[in-house]
């Protein structure tokens, strides 16, 4: 190292002739710095490969079970609906003919006034409306067992009504016959 070099190195501090604008520079620096870490050390689970694998498996299983549940639910609903409809058909085939036959008998009866017939049939119409409503409810599949029960009760009521009516007719017939014999 020659004298010139030595001289410069010894007086290096004299080359620092500038003063930085500290506050201006710091405000610009601060805005570019990352946010400070929190005091508690954060372990980024999602950056661990094992966690990634576990998360993928978990999501896949979740999706699979969701699809499964919805498919099974749909299938169950269909089977339930089918069973209910089958039962309804059975009920209908049993009672419908019976009711229709008895209604026919009532209509044919000569001993009933048209007013009596009308009154009886209006009861039957009301029960018909109720039956239609129950049928709609059954399709909604809320509680098919109870609805089917209600349908059976509906039919039974019709039969009961008809039976009562027929009983009345018969009893009046008996009375008429008795009269004849009395005479």
């Amino acid at each position: 190292m020659d004298n010139f070099e030595k001289y410069i190195k010894e007086n290096k501090a004299l080359f620092d002739v500038h003063k930085a604008d500290k506050s201006k520079l710091w405000s610009n620096i601060e805005s570019g710095l990352n946010k400070p870490d929190s005091n508690t050390k954060t372990i980024k689970l999602w950056s661990m490969p094992l966690f990634k694998v576990a998360a993928t498996v978990f999501i896949a299983l979740g999706l699979f079970s969701l699809i499964n549940i919805s498919l099974i639910g749909k299938a169950n609903k269909n089977t339930q609906n089918n069973v209910a409809l089958q039962e309804l058909n059975d009920i209908n085939s049993h009672y419908k003919g019976l009711v229709a036959y008895q209604v026919k008998l009532v209509n044919k009866s000569t001993q009933l006034s048209s007013e009596e017939k009308k009154e009886f049939l209006s009861f039957m119409d009301e029960l018909d409306i109720e039956y239609e409503l129950l049928k709609v409810e059954l399709q909604k599949n809320v509680d098919s067992e109870r609805i089917l029960e209600a349908i059976v009760i509906n039919y039974k009521k019709r039969i009961e009504l008809i039976e009562n009516l027929l009983e009345q007719i018969n009893s009046s017939k008996k009375l008429d016959n008795d009269d004849v014999y009395t005479l």
């Binding site: 620092d16 003063k19 930085a20 500290k22 620096i29 710095l33 400070p36």
Partner: peptide, 16 residues
């Protein structure tokens, strides 16, 4: 660790 005061002290020491 992101201590802003410590960062400023270092800055002050070296900025000029």
């Amino acid at each position: 660790l992101g201590d802003r005061n410590a960062q400023y002290k270092l800055y002050e020491l070296y900025v000029d």
